[in-house]
Write a protein that binds this DNA or RNA. Sequence first.
DNA 1: AAATTGCACAACCGCTTCTGA
DNA 2: CTCAGAAGCGGTTGTGCAATT
Length: 318
Amino acid sequence: MDMAHERDSSSEEEVMAGDLRRGPWTVEEDILLVNYIAAHGEGRWNSLARSAGLKRTGKSCRLRWLNYLRPDLRRGSITPQEQLLILELHSRWGNRWSKIAQHLPGRTDNEIKNYWRTRVQKHAKQLKCDVNSQQFKDVMRYLWMPRLVERIQAEAVQTAADTPLSWQHGADDALYESPELPVDACWPAEYAAVAGGQLPNASVAELSSTTTAGSSSPSTTDSGAGAQPSWPAAVDGAEWFTTACDASSAAATMCDTDQLIQQQQQQAPSQLAGAWTSEPLPSLGFPELGVADFEIGSLDVDSIWSMDDLWYTQPQFV
DNA sequence: AAATTGCACAACCGCTTCTGA
DNA sequence: CTCAGAAGCGGTTGTGCAATT
């Protein structure tokens, strides 16, 4: 839109003139922003930026706050439950990242978008199909999602066995709370050092990561290696596929996925009105999956396994 | 050990939608 | 109703780090 264009252009001019900063945020800027919002609240981003003494556009401030500084952000890896929801909700709504993010409390649209681009699209590429193709959707629905459900169930069993009573919450809690967030999570050292006790405590209690761009993600894991289900490394892929494609397995998948969404609805009442559980279950199998185009004989089962191995073994997924 | 490649994620950009005067 | 500014959204880019060659 021309109007927007003009605004952006003017912002650009200001940036060029040296009035505005861009690029990675500094600790000092973060503290300014957090303190200002703690005192005055959100909104009116352009004037907020000026009032807070930040040489940033309102847009930049808003983004920084929403995607990084908000105290209710969930940090750490995307859990299997969240993966499942993302896959499911994306199959419903496509790239409506913001809408999808509404059902993953503490996750940002940016985070989900990045997850989709870096992980899911990569796997589509491995399978040599378009991420929006029916084949890929079927693979997701009848391969990955049942697998995730199995994993979630396995972890639930494991967690129940391993977890101290103090960690045993309801299922909803398990979705949104992760042990990697210490109860006493607080500002990272560099913030404390710079702010010198000027940090608003309660509002930023869970800020627990580094601040500058390019910083690596937190190295903590969601459940730790001990909670991993013991998938036999040498399990036969084709055999598992057959099992996973068993109709009862798929039915369980759908049931469980829907349960997750119901949990989300309870957690954050929403307009979720999907009805995929009411869809007729297809007769499952390779041809019906529509993956014939992948040429099952040459379908790189190993790549499926490697994908799953990624989901199982990479710290950010566990 | 150095160079290259790939990944993950923060930040930016352009556009659309919303809101209030 | 119109218009301007603000907010929101989805796509894209830049960059630091880790893994690989």
